[in-house]
Design a protein around this nucleic acid. Structure first.
Lengths: 347, 347
DNA sequence: TCAGCTATCCAAAGCGCTTTGAAAATCGGT
DNA sequence: ACCGATTTTCAAAGCGCTTTGGATAGCTGA
């Protein structure tokens, strides 16, 4: 079923049918109704490629599957993010074109997207500090929005980010107010912008309180459960262990919990934990009573917002970059409590 | 940069350039080299839509984001699955077209895929018992492979599945051999085929051992951490609590662990746990020394295999359905041990 | 009745590619 | 030197849609 046969069946020209279906005014209400009914009844849908070729738009948004090069790990927030993005993109008639990057050359994929006209825009995930993808996309003129920002990149570009610095500053201050003095940081890879910023927030808060940050209490790696577990186990074995840990991922926080359990310690009493919580659909931190005290920000909502921004950017490219900074909520659960007395802990 | 300008720049016809680039034999080696070099140097890539329109192939595989209707939860294995699938699809020149289903009408999306010619085939996730999508896709003639099977569907169709029945039978037998008699099942939604089969394997093993399955020890729901936690907590409060739990997801198993911790019990000693493990990249069950005893099967590898199968199906539609049953490994970790003596437990 | 509008519809070009059918160039054999 | 076979190249049609630039029909007012 294509336009031609539909038009013939209706005794109309392709032009008229096309216009009727696309809401142009040059067609009478009666004809439009007739056309729409016939189209619905015969199950006609315009061929995507033909339509795209004629209009010059692919109605597709490019998305590279965000995997870390080192461990072939898929970003755990990807599913929720893409569910959010996809939902709002669909409203504007877009689908997502998903592709993997062979090796590490995401730039090559973007160049190809552009050359092939495969997509109308892209969403950039997990920006690093000084991320070179931004300049590249600017160069080749492919509309894009970044999920996060990139410290060190001066070009104007569109982004939506969580205020990571502020979130981790607040989390740290919160612990300090509870009397904690030795606060550890289990962070993501610090070449990633979000991790870089979180560390900044953490150290700033410590400094502001007159505390020095101890390198031995700061670690950074891929945010797996095991990472949280191993680092916590290690830190608990230190001569002067931390009384609190701030953690960049709920997965690693689960690892922390496991290490505490193994050591026979009670979370929130013997050791306080605050984690960042992306509010993943499959790993809820408890709705009414959160398990972990957390800096919370829905990654799904971020996906929705990025989708809207990109759609707007594509339809009005000259209106300048869209930027938006989201504040994370600090939700208090049962994983934090006052710092244990030194005496008690030694005894 | 399009074919026309490239051909003009080379002083050749579009035909020759197209053929040179697509490896047709009717072009001399010298010309081919010249064309290829010019194309590489000028960064020419054929326009996707134009090529697709001419060839009638979209070089796109449709994939609906698998979300549960009830809780808007994205399937946690989705990221890893799609990473595997995407990798092997890319080798064959395909990308993934990702879309969300508004409401619950996945069939509508497939019909549209077909009518619009948007994709060359689709991957069907999370089949239910008597899944109606299979008949629909058969009807409309869109090539597809199912990730899993659908009990009750008699039509021939292509699928790749883990032997869920066998996996859970073995897991149950393993616990029985360890002396366990009260074995609980924390299962996924049993209208899903995988959960239906797992329960079958579980009850079969119990029956074979002359044990009756106790409804109070079997529960089924979305496999979240919280579900594992709450159900375990509840079961521990029973008059005659289980000494072992079999669980369908590592996320729920983590919830089980939390409940045990809360109750002051030690996993593997006071209560044994076996979980299914999809070998998710972001939630590894420990490589050398698994945390949980588990029935393991890599969902990423499943993605790779499904991709290969679908590509083959598209290129040779008449060769009949492709089916493959994968066996899960039973890996033994420290979450299982001999059943505690009744006396010891009561005391 | 007819010019001048507007409302309605249409033929054909064009999007960038592949592919068919034919022409031109090259070659070996006599 | 010439012919048939083989290579190599090309012009043009076609994929299914949108959109431009008319054409036609139906009205209005004089």
């Amino acid at each position: 079923m294509n336009l031609k046969t539909l038009a013939e069946a209706l005794g109309l020209s392709q032009t008229t049918v096309s216009r009727a279906l696309n809401g142009y005014p040059e067609v009478s209400a009666a004809t439009r109704r007739r056309v729409e009914e016939a189209a619905a009844q015969m199950g006609y849908r315009p061929n995507s490629r033909a339509k795209g070729l004629a209009t010059g738009r692919a109605m597709l948004i490019g998305q590279v599957i965000p995997t870390s090069t080192e461990h072939e790990m898929v970003n755990p927030v990807f599913g929720d993010f893409v569910a959010g993005a996809s939902q709002n993109l669909a409203r504007a008639g877009y689908d997502i074109l998903l592709t993997r990057v062979p090796g590490d050359d995401e730039g090559k994929v973007y160049r190809e997207f552009r050359a092939r006209g495969a997509v109308d825009g892209v969403i950039v995930q997990a920006p690093a500090v000084n991320d070179e993808r931004i300049a590249l996309l600017n160069d080749i003129g492919l509309p894009f929005v970044v999920h996060g920002r990139s410290t060190g990149v001066d070009l104007p570009y569109s982004w939506i980010d969580v205020n990571n610095t502020q979130a981790f500053r607040r989390a740290t201050e919160f612990l300090i107010q509870l009397g904690h003095r030795r606060i550890a940081l289990i962070n993501g890879l610090e070449r990633m912008d979000f991790a870089f910023r979180r560390r900044k927030g953490y150290t700033h808060a410590l400094e502001a309180a007159g505390l020095s940050s101890d390198p031995i209490l700061m670690c950074t790696d891929e945010m797996t459960e095991e990472f949280g577990f191993k680092k916590t186990r290690h830190m608990l074995s230190l001569e002067d262990p931390p009384t609190a840990i701030i953690c960049s991922s709920i997965l690693s926080a689960i690892g922390i919990r496991r290490a505490l359990q193994e050591a026979g310690l009670v979370m929130g009493r013997d050791l306080s934990v605050i984690t960042h919580d992306d509010d993943l659909s499959y790993l809820k931190n408890g709705q009414d009573l959160p398990i972990f005290t957390a800096t919370r920000s829905s990654v799904r909502m971020a996906g929705e917002l990025l989708a809207d921004a990109l759609v707007q950017l594509i339809s009005a490219p000259d209106e300048g970059p869209i930027t938006r900074l989201l504040e994370a909520q600090l939700v208090v659960g049962s994983s934090t409590g006052p710092a244990p007395l030194q005496a008690a802990r030694l005894g």
